[in-house]
């Protein structure tokens, strides 16, 4: 799904990310962990071609993300609330996305039904602009926006942060269901080792822009390995 070749991002002298090689296969949930400044968000931004790579390239389904744009049709993402249109209500925003993704009203209804539980009645039909929503509710809008148009690849930056416990659990269920039914690929960065080891079969540990561990195996194995690193 994603192939990364000698990807490097540097600001003047400091290199913030340096990944010689990384391949993420279809229907895999790929977790990204690391302390602040490790380069998690930078990697996600590079994959989405939001910032320019200093050297190297990212390919989605064989297409260099900085050259073509057809990968955008199969990719959904939510990194931060800049990606939303704060002056719309959630319903209006979803309607804009519906048009962008060329979906019908029925498609939108179906989509909203999938997220009904996750929204918990606090998103749809509200007379509030997105900019006035609480952090957690903005996140719910953004996450469900990332699933518009049935993407084959979904990138989420710290999706569990600022969500309440029930929503965190519901989000995990959504991710697992998508993976199972549509073999969607996920790339999730998180500080929550519990969640990330539970839903991701592969977890990569970043430190100062470098991949220092690439962990697969049972949940316990991953959790153990990460625990040793982070307590050290």
């Amino acid at each position: 799904m994603i192939t990364i070749n000698s990807l490097k991002k540097a600001y003047e002298e400091t290199t913030v990310l340096d990944i010689p090689e990384l391949t993420i296969s279809q229907s895999q949930c790929f977790g990204l962990v690391g302390n602040n400044g490790a380069g998690k968000t930078t990697l996600l931004r590079l994959i989405l071609d939001l910032i320019r790579a200093t050297t190297g390239e990212v390919q989605i389904e064989g297409e260099n993300v900085s050259k073509g744009e057809s990968w955008k049709k199969i990719t959904g993402a939510y990194l931060d609330d800049h990606m939303l249109l704060g002056y719309l209500t959630p319903d209006e925003y979803f309607d804009v996305l519906r048009k962008v993704h060329k979906m019908s009203d029925a498609d939108l209804k179906l989509h909203n039904e999938r997220f009904e539980n996750f929204f918990n009645g606090e998103i749809l039909g509200q007379k509030k602009y997105i900019r006035d929503l609480s952090k957690g509710n903005k996140k719910r809008v953004g996450i469900s926006a990332a699933f518009f148009g049935n993407p084959q690849l979904v990138l989420l930056d710290e999706p569990f942060e600022s969500l309440d416990p029930s929503s965190q659990i519901r989000l995990k269920k959504i991710v697992e269901k998508e993976k199972e039914e549509k073999s969607t690929t996920f790339m999730i960065s998180s500080h929550d080792l519990d969640h990330v080891t539970e839903i991701c079969e592969r977890v990569v540990l970043l430190e100062k822009g470098l991949i220092i561990q690439d962990i697969s195996g049972t949940r316990e194995d991953k959790f153990e390995a990460l625990n040793i690193y982070f307590s050290g």
């Binding site: 989405l48 939001l50 744009e69 955008k72 990719t75 800049h82 990606m83 939303l84 249109l85 148009g149």
Partner: peptide, 11 residues
């Protein structure tokens, strides 16, 4: 730009 770059609309 930042509201639209990640959507499937060409740059």
């Amino acid at each position: 730009l930042q509201h639209y770059l990640h959507l499937p609309i060409p740059r």
